[in-house]
Design a protein around this nucleic acid. Sequence first.
DNA 1: GCCGTTTTCGGCCCGACTGTTTTCAGTCG
Length: 563
Amino acid sequence: MRNRELANIFIKIGDALEFKGEMPFKIAAYRKAARTLEDLTEDIEVLWKDGKLTSIPGVGKGIAKKIDEYLETGEMKKYKEAMEGISSDLLELLNIQGMGPKTLRIAHDTLGVSSRKDLEKVIKDGSLASLPGMGEKKVENIKKGLEVFSAEEKRISIGIALPLAEEVIDWIKQAGVERVAPAGSLRRMRETIGDIDILCASNRGGEIIDHFTNFARVERILAKGETKGSIIIKEGYQIDLRVVPEECFGAALQYFTGSKPHNIKLRSIARQKGLKISEYGIFKGNNKIAGREEEEIYSTLGLAWIPPELREDRGEIELGKAPELVDYDDIRGDFHIHSNYSDGVNSIKEIAEFAKGLGYEYIAITDHSKSAKYANGLDEKRLRKEMREIERVQEEVGIRIFRGTEVDILRDGSLDFDDNILQDLDIVIAAVHMFPKQDLTDVILKACSNPHVDAIAHPTGRLISRRQGYKVNINEVIECAASTNTALEINCYYDRLDLSDVNARRAKQSGAKIILSSDAHNLGMMKGMRFGVGVARRAWLSRSDVLNTFSAAQLESWLKERV
DNA sequence: GCCGTTTTCGGCCCGACTGTTTTCAGTCG
């Protein structure tokens, strides 16, 4: 899979051309192609071999030819040409807030700035401020931007951002406003969030913003005006609040939810109809014809309302109607929970009662297997004991509990338990818990092909905040899962969200079933399911793709039939 | 460089804000 590799090349070409002052639309074309490639569920090499490159949106004759050249020869003339006299260190500087292509160009040409160090130097010695069009304040902004830039990229997991946003929304509501909502990538349920965007309807902007900036954990107030406030809280996250009049709320919500490519496409549709969209509404000439409700924005353009999770310009607009997506209310159970038999903190009974309180029809208890020493993994004897306890609790609490295990996949692809005990369990999820340098694709494929394995847990092993995951060709795993009718897990723990939305969408297209699992080690973690639902929706999964929407009886027959 | 109920050329989303200017360019979302 070389999609990302090609996407990165086109991103660099875009940056390089921007630096060189090339036509903006050409630059946008490369970036659009890059983005499409990143999101593409098909393998670019397959499309290439089939001669279907130009069927990819944003890929025309020109870019197709460049992809062809690159896949054929490993090189791309256009890339070399664009990068002539330009280093990656230099292009990196374009990511600094306040530093655009024009500013970088002039700093490079007149002061020889081509790296972060150079930039720091010309800020310090005042030469940057002396350039035409520059001044002290601009330099100060770039300096601040450089500080943020240096502090590593800081995106927050949705699992941290969403509860935080809800806390802030509660605070804003105390100022006596009704309509307050998250916007931006948070509302689109992206896996990670840059800044937290919140939108509010009121005619008392200044007053609301004032109240907002008095939030308990404010560290610094960045901006405080009549319509917009911006704070940084103690944890280091930026939160922006915008206040608009009630009659603009829908338009503003649509606008600030984005994504940018989605909005661009909507606006071009509006333009074709002789309309104009802004965050204040849809206008025909000077007449506002929509804006209070978000649905109006879409319906005025002749479209059905589109769920925020889909708004990425990945075909959701052309579709004409919203696809049926799995919803949090559809979730009837949880497939991956640890009890105090291994490394969880709660008893099976506590878990069962809590699950019942969540409205679940069933859960699976899946403690670690014996090799997972660090997690107090169960040997066969303890697992048998646990199975008996599960049966008792099931009777007592009155919720279906599947007797399960999260069995370790060992280095040679064999499982940590033998068939004798696996066949006595209701559900077996298998997982890798090691991080060797070697590629684990074959190891996972072997486990996936084992008829006793019903699902592969956290298939790539990534942790959003701190590790990439093991070396694995996830597309091969997806294909294998589809062909062996083995489910793939979306692990809903906020720092995993593994599968990612892109991989989950690939899984759907391959026909693999998906399970959502909290991987809970305590009761609170069981509520993390909603983050995984976000991933599933972003992956366009419908109810029939997700086993958690099945009834207990349907599941039992699925588990029986798949072997 | 892409693309097509204004089609194979001539368009390509829109507005706010900022800081530098003295009417606007650059940057951002």
